[in-house]
Design a protein around this nucleic acid. Structure first.
Length: 763
DNA sequence: TCTACTGACACATTTGAATGGG
DNA sequence: ACCCATTCAAATGTGTCAGTAG
């Protein structure tokens, strides 16, 4: 609610960040380009982009680290897959972040959105992912707002930030605010840090952080068995499926056998056939354990049938279990070319299980220490392809012994080293190889009374805390008084902000791309024809009071494209105070009309705005091993996120590697195509929380932004919907901004029904 | 027939209420 | 009466698998 207006700013449009990869130091992403490494010097085109106050990047030192970068890279080395279900599925690994450089006294909002990496649909074939066609029409973008938002910089910096509550769904009609994605598509999560001074006012810039290693392909069922194994061994919720779990393959087989045996016995009893039951009945009927053993024997040919072993297996002590896990994990790691030996040895004598499994947290991924340096082959599942020359030739380039998959189109893990290959990225020390360790959980974590908090973990004591920081982020609802106020004020500010932002956006000529070389934007690459303009979207200060709405600003110089893509934003939680708020007299389903929120321009000519496909691919060498790919974070000031000039793009290797280039990398995914994201991007902005509805809706002054402000561009009514799941432990406020195709005002009342989401017939 | 998706299933974890002891 | 620890059950998060639809 804080500022719906800011949302548009987030709608940067698809960015070709998939192949971006910027090395960084082990513990420090370099979200924001160091002042010393002024990208502008490397960015083609005008360097004066940030000259304008509104878009002027803040030269603060906001940094965001991906705490569980190592885990992400492990998955990425195999090809991260994310299950999406109709009801919504959490991401694993989750995004665990550390923020620094924020103004402790200023409030910030953290947002998560997930954008397509390319315009392709994938299929898992021959042990790798291949492009099998073009992507489906992009679904409405939804943004997940961290439950703590807004919170002060001190708050964000004092703990690990987790977005584990975010869920992914393939239900295009999802009404729970989950992030809607297409199956078998490749996506890239983005984290936005939006300054919300005075709760309602956008007083600063927006920072967008992208961690290439967090790319993933959505699936409804795991395709790559290695991913399954990694998940089982990393996610506590899947513990039951581990080797020693009761739901393991062996155990399941045993149960299956047992069932068969029972059935057989029954049949035998009924049939009175002594011949068939004589040997079987005594074993399984007498002792279930024996049955399991039988099952194990049947499934494990190498072991043979040993009832005592079976029972022992069932009662494995922790140490034994750990040993098994270690062996298992080691085998798995070897499969993916990751040498866990170091990590295992570092786990305080416990085992990988401790570091990688036991400490794993559904919310907080295991903070095992991995050394990518030891990685031998990250592309086990993918055929190795000729490694293009790169600045990292000297580095151990994975020549992937696993060439079983000849498909060149299935590149192994590829995190294009932005720095290495991109002239625009400064070659910082971060390029150096590094071991990935996890920041020690903030004191606040340990202070938490929750079990997880008690089990604080750190790189130094990985096994001590399975749930290091979750309590912080999860439990920290941090309901803030402001929210109540925001409820009463936001609608106004929001509207005005939106208006303003839109105007700002609209007023920005395409020529703004020339400013793409801004310091902050250097790392960000707008998707095709993204005319963004995000820079100004957040610059409009909301009026403190609803009634104080003031027309924004500058009239639109040009209309937004009708097919621009609105972005939806989900408000994860609302303080209990707000939830309890009642707004008598408010319409049950008010909607806030947010004209022209969408700022995303269509991508008619991707080639024009996107880096040319043929541009040099980042050094494969650096990409071949996660080890050489420090968890990079692409930080971009929203205000500066602009499309990269064609010329610039073409010269930006890191922006969009060519398929061939990708194939040469270790990316688990096929090369990202430089195709444009379907111009049909649609965003929704729906406010779920009931408490917010009235506020957003009602007060909207009839004198909303003059129609003139939104000339030929259809408006995107903000549809407010009462959260059907207000009982959730963490109330979610979801904002969806729905784009009305060619129908600026499909409803007599600007406030449409939330159910109108179904109107997205275009999908 | 193949591929992708769905829902039921079993297991593990998390969470909060209930209970009992100090 | 209060606090704390333990126990229990429900809710939730997992991957698996059989069935289904296109």
């Amino acid at each position: 609610m804080l500022s719906v207006d800011m949302y548009p700013a987030l709608n940067l449009g698809p960015q070709r960040i998939g192949d971006f990869y910027r090395d960084r130091e082990a513990h420090a992403h370099i979200p924001m380009l160091p002042p010393a490494c002024d990208m502008t010097q490397r960015m083609p085109g005008p360097l004066s982009a940030p000259s304008e106050p509104v878009s002027k990047p803040q030269k603060d030192d906001v940094k965001m680290d991906l705490e569980n970068s190592a885990l992400w890279k492990h998955f990425s080395s195999v090809g991260t897959e994310m299950i999406i279900t109709k009801k919504g599925r959490r991401m694993f690994p989750g995004l665990r972040l550390k923020l620094s450089g924020l103004n402790p006294s200023v409030r910030y909002i953290l947002l998560l959105d997930i954008v397509p990496v390319d315009n392709s649909r994938y299929r898992f074939q021959g042990g790798g992912w291949q492009v099998v066609g073009s992507a489906e029409a992009r679904l409405p973008d939804r943004v997940f707002i961290h439950p703590d938002s807004p919170a002060t910089g001190a708050h964000w910096q004092s703990r690990t930030i987790s977005f584990h509550y975010a869920k992914l769904t393939n239900n295009t009609l999802d009404t729970q605010g989950h992030i809607i994605l297409h199956s078998l598509h490749r996506y890239q999560p983005r984290i936005h840090v939006v300054e919300a001074r005075d709760v309602l006012k956008w007083a600063g810039g927006q920072r967008t952080f992208v961690f290439p290693e967090t790319q993933f392909i959505t699936v409804t069922a795991y395709q790559n068995s290695k991913i399954t194994e990694l998940k089982i061994n990393s996610n506590p919720f899947a513990k039951g499926f581990r080797e020693d779990g009761m739901n393991s393959k062996k155990q399941r087989d045993a149960r299956q056998k047992r069932k068969i045996s029972d059935l057989t016995e029954t049949l035998d009893t009924v049939n009175c056939d002594p011949c068939d039951s004589t040997e079987l009945v005594p074993q399984h009927s007498a002792n279930p354990t024996d049955l399991q053993a039988l099952g194990l024997a049947l499934t494990d040919h190498s072991a043979g049938f040993r009832p005592e072993e079976a029972s022992y297996k069932d009662t494995l002590n922790p140490e034994h279990s750990l040993a098994l896990d270690q062996a298992f994990i080691a085998s798995q790691m070897s499969d993916i070319g990751i040498n866990l030996a170091g990590g295992i040895q570092e786990t305080s004598g416990t085992s990988v299980d401790n570091s990688m499994i036991e400490r794993s947290d559904p919310l907080a991924e295991p903070a095992y220490i991995s050394s990518f340096a030891a990685a031998q082959d990250n592309s086990s599942n993918f055929s190795s392809v000729p490694q293009p020359s790169s600045s990292f030739d000297s580095l151990p380039v994975s020549t992937s012994s696993d060439t079983s998959d000849p498909r060149p189109s299935i590149p192994p893990m590829d995190y294009p080293t932005l720095l290495s290959s991109s002239p625009t990225l400064p070659a910082t020390p971060s390029l150096q190889q590094n071991s990935f360790t996890f920041p020690t959980p903030p004191p606040s974590d340990s202070s938490s009374s929750s079990p997880q908090a008690v089990l604080s973990s750190s790189s130094s004591s990985p096994s001590s805390n399975p749930y290091p920081t979750i309590p912080e982020t999860v439990g920290a609802q941090t309901p803030t008084p402001f929210r109540c106020q925001s409820v009463t004020q936001d609608h106004m500010s929001t509207h005005s902000l939106l208006t303003h932002s839109n105007q700002q956006q609209l007023t920005e000529p395409n020529s703004d791309r020339n400013n793409a070389q801004s310091l902050w934007a250097s790392a960000a690459f707008m998707y095709p024809n993204v005319q963004t303009t995000n820079q100004d979207l957040f610059t409009i200060a909301a009026q403190p009071l609803p009634n104080q709405y003031q027309p924004a600003a500058p009239p639109l110089s040009r209309p937004l494209p009708a097919n621009s893509t609105p972005t939806s934003f989900a408000f994860p939680s609302v303080s209990s105070q707000i939830q309890s708020l009642s707004f008598p007299g408010m319409s049950p389903s008010p909607a806030l009309h947010l004209p022209n929120i969408s700022h995303q321009a269509p991508a008619p000519s991707l080639g024009a705005t996107l880096p040319h496909p043929s541009f040099p691919h980042p050094s494969s060498a650096s990409c071949s091993h996660p080890h050489f790919q420090p968890s990079s974070c692409l930080a971009v000031s929203s205000s500066l996120q602009q499309p990269i000039p064609t010329s610039a793009a073409s010269s930006q290797p890191h922006a969009l590697p060519t398929p061939s280039a990708s194939s040469s990398s270790t990316c688990s995914y096929p090369p990202v195509e430089i195709s444009a994201i379907p111009p049909t991007y649609r965003s929704e902005l729906v406010l779920h929380h009931p408490a917010l509805l009235p506020q957003l809706d009602a007060p909207l002054p009839s004198s909303n932004p003059p129609a003139a402000l939104y000339p030929a561009f259809p408006s995107y009514p903000l549809r407010l919907c009462q959260n059907p799941h207000s009982s959730l432990s963490i109330p979610f406020r979801h904002l969806y901004r729905q784009h009305q195709h060619g129908h600026p005002h499909p409803h007599p009342h600007p406030q449409g029904s939330y159910l109108d989401m179904s109107t997205r017939a275009m999908f």
